[in-house]
Amino acid sequence: MVRALLVASALTLASCASQAPGQQGAAADPPYVVSEEMQDARREYLQHAGAFLADPGSDTSRGWHQQTIALLGREDLQALIPESTNWFPKSDCAEGAGDAIGEIVRRAEAYSVVIVNEDHAVPQHRGVIAGLVRELTASGFTHYAAEAMYPDAVTPRDDHATRVSDGWYTQDPQLAALLAELRAAGTTLVQYEQRPEQRAPDDASMDESINAREEAQANNLIEAVFARAPETRIIIHVGHAHVYEMVNGQPSVWMAARLKAKTGIDPLTIDLTPCKPGGAAPVLAGEVTFRGNPWAPGTDLVARMPVVTFTSNRPDYRRSAETQDIAVPEALRPVSGLAIIEARRAGEGDEIVPSDRLLLRPGEEIPLILMPGDYVVVAFGAEGLLERPVQLTVTR
């Protein structure tokens, strides 16, 4: 059931933001100030979302558009993509040794480096990885690296919050929350993505571009971590094939294999991406069959993800015993066009990644999923604020 809101008051719009006619309120202290950088990101979100909804089967809808739909809290809309057009078709995987997280943590005791991947368009993977990271840092891993992070993400700051400037995939509220949690716990964050000067020339082939990126990522990890402290216990969070140690039984060209060859450190590698979902919890996969043929994994372990179930168009895996479904205030729901609804902790600036974000179309009644606390809920279009923000309290 969607909980009723405890509305404290409405905030006025910042003077720099666009306002709907007749919607100005009395001055409030402080007004809501829109971050230009965050609003640029919202414009990009809306462009991708509009293109996706116009043609879910297009090539670009299976790439950036699909990833954006996920960042906007609407994994339910990915069902619009025809399965026959999926860039990364899933395989049939037999169930293996049971509980994936527990078994990975057990095996990781013998390793100093754990590399795990995600499908960038499946934020469920980030939720699973977040749980794994919490278990591994509790057991002695001190560093967390992710290709998702920009240099700003590892810059010292007075608070622990994740900002829009920290990365692209880090704008997923659940990954943003993990980074904030790791900062607060004192875990060292490592940024290692290829820098502009490390890229292959513009006229390079696909293979040349891949080789340049994989080499840069491995070298950057060595420079940032292993050259100074080769015994460092680190979790490296990658996308797709960067995790492969082997391809067709031979050492791969991907980052994990290069890092192993350069450092002599054997990582524990886990692939979360190849299997068709099944069951209610992550399990290690046994035999993997791709298009009817046995498939040799390029990693130490393969995990099969659970089926994502939805309630009120939101994925149930994002809910916990502490979260509550909160109705979007009626005044913030769009009457025409697309709107982005964001809920931030009271006192957080607009440049902070929100606690929850939701794309709404006219007529949709889809809840935010929030922990107890005080929030400011805001509705945005491409030009800025659509209505006066609303303050609310989520009770226990």
Rank of each mutant, 00 (worst) to 15 (best):
L5I: 06
A14T: 10
D40P: 01
H48Y: 08
F52Q: 03
P56H: 06
G57W: 06
S58I: 02
G63V: 10
Q66T: 08
L71A: 01
R74L: 04
P89Y: 07
C93K: 03
E95S: 07
H120L: 03
V128F: 07
L132E: 07
T137D: 04
T137M: 02
D152V: 01
D159E: 10
A161R: 08
R163N: 04
D172E: 13
A177G: 12
E208S: 05
S209G: 12
N211I: 06
Q217I: 12
R228H: 14
I234F: 04
H240R: 13
A241G: 08
A241M: 14
V247H: 11
V247C: 12
G249L: 14
V253T: 11
M255A: 07
A261Q: 15
A261Y: 09
D266Q: 13
K276Q: 15
P282S: 13
V288H: 04
N293Y: 10
N293F: 10
G298M: 01
T299Q: 06
T309Q: 09
F310R: 11
T311E: 15
A339S: 14
A346Q: 09
R357P: 01
I369Y: 01
L370A: 01
M371R: 04
V377D: 02
V377P: 00
F380K: 00
G381Q: 06
A382C: 05
R396A: 15
